[in-house]
Design a binder for these strands. Structure first.
Lengths: 196, 196
DNA sequence: TGAACGCGTAGACAGTGTCTACGACACTCT
DNA sequence: AGAGTGTCGTAGACACTGTCTACGCGTTCA
């Protein structure tokens, strides 16, 4: 009588339910009690594994960071050897993630809902940022600018596009269809126009 | 016996209190009942002027947008005649606002807390964005890129830097001291290196 | 067999946003 | 002048939230 796929322990089931829920209903729907309800347990049960609401939300968000890091890694690996193409792929996968998993993306950067505010930034974002710095350094070796600075600015640009596009603040600038021109503009700006 | 400066009506007093509160305690402290408490009225009183919690928060956020637009306008006006310097001033005032009024900045871009999600974007951001497009167009007339696209990308970059720096995600890239290099990098990237 | 313990239940508590009925007050109209 | 009519704020209820606590049920170990 396996109603749910498998009882892999309540801890991970709560996180699973949270991931489902945030996709369906957004970050605002992630109440402790609603998650417990959907997991089929009482409202006090999560407390055994997650001492506070924030810790549960943080565990859910960590799934998002892992997923994003995985996608970005694949995108980079698929363009092996061409740093510029790798950067483009990284940017595209980031933006794609933000627009596809809106609820999760919202949660991941709602620092008031996450604890210690460096659960994913220090663990998954930091190596990702390091590879970004490397790619920037090799993609434009001639430039005198520090790769760390360029990478940081590009990172922020990417994030800003994802965020603003996600809630419709940039559509009036570009037209409603496609954020791709913005993405290309950002890459060209920070990396120099594409060599062809 | 004027305990508070002047009774200019409860409506505006609620917004005043909200602006104070968000500066002191952050966006999370802006509960309807706490605002009413600080204004010295019962928890049901705000409902006469703001039908919902979101509408009150939106009125508070509007103050922030007005303030930001005013600062940006002054910054631009102070550099009359030099588009590039105007853009730099605009960018600096934006970042400065975000880092000085952290609570307000947080509220202004918490779209889940604001109603109709275009209270300030359509009313104050849109003309500001229009002038940004103009400045970009005149600051780099030689470039073939569409000014709307460049302005949108720069806008997003600015916002991303403000956001990420605000919660400490970029300090590891640049060092803890100053976001200025990031800002200069973004401007140089989107507008071309500064002519000197 | 009996004790200990992991694990989830259930109720309480303070806090929230929203809704409703109710008063105090001022102002107008005949 | 007196009655009626609005405006404006109060106060209580309701459902919901996160956290805390005491309580059981079941298994496991000695």
């Amino acid at each position: 009588m396996a109603e749910r796929e498998q009882d892999t322990g309540l801890r991970s089931r709560l996180v699973d339910v949270g991931v489902e829920l945030v996709d369906e209903e957004g970050a605002g729907a992630l109440s402790l009690r609603e998650i417990a309800r959907r997991a089929g347990v009482s409202h006090g049960a999560p407390r055994r594994y997650f001492p506070t609401h924030l810790s549960l939300l943080s565990a859910i968000a960590r799934r998002g960071f892992e997923s994003l890091a995985a996608r970005a890694g694949e995108a980079i690996a698929a363009q092996e050897g061409d740093p510029r193409a790798q950067l483009t792929a990284l940017a595209r996968s980031w933006l794609d993630f933000a627009l596809t998993n809106r609820g999760m993306f919202e949660l991941m950067f709602r620092h008031d809902l996450l604890e210690s505010n460096q659960l994913g930034l220090r663990e998954t974002s930091l190596p990702l940022f390091a590879t970004l710095v490397d790619l920037v350094a090799t993609a434009r070796p001639e430039s005198g600018a520090e790769p760390r600075i360029v990478a940081g600015a590009l990172w922020a640009n990417l994030h800003g596009i994802a965020q603003l596009w996600g809630w419709g603040s940039l559509q009036l600038a570009v037209g409603d269809d496609d954020p791709e021109p913005l993405l290309r503009a950002a890459l060209d700006a920070h990396l120099g126009p594409e060599a062809r």
